[in-house]
Amino acid sequence: MTGKHLEGCRIMIVEDELLIAMALEEILQDAGATIVGMASCVADALALIEREDFDAAILDVRLDDERVTAVADALEAGAKPFVFHSGYGPELLPQRHRHRPLLRKLCAPAAIVRMLCTAMA
């Protein structure tokens, strides 16, 4: 996938692995997105949701020992599209969010961009 498919989009990244968060940041910026913030724990993610304006989010399913259910619930309540990005399968997704897209780590950059575009459509 080439081009700036996310041009003008503001994205939040919720990921506890620094190298993966940095890789996601680079992929999304290369696609034209602006990263409004990165969070590595549930509390920081919830704070970002409260203070930042953004178009979509990409969420790891587990942040250290925390599940991101509260983050997914807050995004849903605010009508913000999001996709999960995890090394785990769908069985670890929060039950009420299993209809959400799941990208398996480490997937192709084009798949990440495509899935975020689809989620925002």
Rank of each mutant, 00 (worst) to 15 (best):
G3E: 08
H5L: 14
L6D: 10
L6G: 06
E7C: 12
G8S: 07
C9G: 01
M12K: 09
V14Y: 13
D16N: 10
D16R: 06
E17L: 10
L18A: 09
L19C: 13
L19T: 15
I20S: 10
I20M: 11
I20K: 03
A21I: 08
A21D: 12
A23M: 10
E25D: 14
E26F: 00
I27L: 07
L28P: 07
Q29K: 12
D30P: 01
G32F: 06
I35A: 08
V36Y: 06
G37M: 00
A39Y: 01
S40N: 02
S40W: 09
A43I: 01
D44Q: 11
L46Y: 09
L46C: 01
L46P: 01
A47H: 10
L48S: 05
L48K: 03
L48A: 07
I49K: 01
E52Y: 02
D53T: 12
F54Q: 00
F54C: 01
F54Y: 04
D55S: 13
D55R: 01
A56Q: 02
A56G: 05
A56W: 09
A57I: 07
I58K: 08
I58Y: 06
I58S: 03
L59M: 09
L59F: 11
D60S: 13
D60I: 01
V61H: 01
V61Q: 04
R62P: 00
R62T: 12
L63H: 09
L63A: 10
D64A: 00
E66H: 11
R67G: 12
R67A: 13
A74R: 02
A74F: 02
L75P: 03
L75T: 03
L75I: 04
E76N: 14
A77M: 03
A79C: 07
K80I: 15
K80D: 09
P81H: 02
V83P: 02
H85Y: 15
S86D: 08
G87E: 00
G87C: 04
Y88V: 00
Y88W: 07
P90S: 12
L92F: 03
L92E: 04
P94K: 05
P94E: 14
Q95L: 11
H97I: 13
H99D: 11
R100P: 13
L103W: 14
R104I: 14
R104L: 15
K105N: 09
L106T: 13
C107N: 09
C107V: 15
A108M: 09
A108C: 12
P109M: 07
P109I: 08
A110F: 11
A111L: 15
I112L: 13
V113Q: 08
V113N: 05
R114N: 10
C117S: 13
T118N: 10
T118I: 15
M120S: 05
A121K: 12
A121I: 02
